[in-house]
Structures are given as C-alpha cells and as structure tokens.
C-alpha cells in the first residue's frame, strides 16, 4: 500500500479514485444494504398494516374472551361480554396509537 501514498502520508487522491473505480469494476464493493427489511424505524407499509391488524384483532380477542369468562363466572350473560368487546376494541385502538402515535414527551 506504500506506493499509493505521497510524502505527507495521506493517500494520493488519484490513487483513491483509481482504486474506487477498479473496485467498482470488479464488483468488490458491497452494494448499499437495504435497511428497510430488518429495521424497525422504517418498516415496509405492508408490515405496518399487518402489525396494526394483528394488534386490533388481538385486543378484541382478549376483550371478548375476558367478557365471556366473567359472564360465565358472575352469571351476568350477556352484559359483561358486550362491555368487554367494546373495551377490547378501545384497547386495540390504544395499541395502534402506541404503535403509530407520536413518541412520548419523556423519551
């Protein structure tokens, strides 16, 4: 590598340019990695849509099953089921808000 440097110890700019073009020609430089796949900061729109759907659905499932079991236990069928399905829907919206809403001011 010594012949690529001039007297000041810095790499010769023309050498750097020639090296870069040679590397590009040989395909040695890795292409810029696509960060969208594994990065949570910029997930794909499809991924966001799927996550939102799953969050909404899971909160509703939890709400409905909680209401169902409380009804079975307290013999209040069907009132708690109705209440908890509504609460589950609200919980789903809360989940989505936590996922997509503005960051908390404390963080």
């Amino acid at each position: 590598m010594s012949d690529g440097k001039n007297s000041s110890g810095k790499p010769d700019p023309s050498f750097e340019a020639r090296l870069a073009s040679a590397r590009a020609k040989q395909g040695l430089d890795p292409k810029p990695v696509d960060q969208s796949a594994g990065d949570m900061k910029g997930p794909s729109p499809m991924g966001v849509g799927l996550r939102v759907g799953v969050e909404l659905l899971s909160a509703l499932i939890v709400g409905a099953s909680l209401g169902y079991w409380l009804d079975r236990w307290l013999h209040t069928s069907p009132f708690l089921l109705i209440v908890f399905v509504l609460l589950g829907g609200a919980g789903g919206i809360a989940n989505v808000w936590r996922l997509l809403g503005p960051a908390k001011p404390g963080k």
Partner: peptide, 24 residues
Amino acid sequence: PIIIPVEIISYLSRPVSLSIRLFA
C-alpha cells in the same frame, strides 16, 4: 373506570398479538 380496563386489556393482548403474528 375506562382507562384501567382498556390498559389491562391492552397489556393482556401483547402475548396474543405476539403469538398470532408468528403463527399466522
């Protein structure tokens, strides 16, 4: 009375959404 049940359901929905996402 509204926020606490909603937050509890939201907390309990975490394992559900985790498992459904992977399985689905």
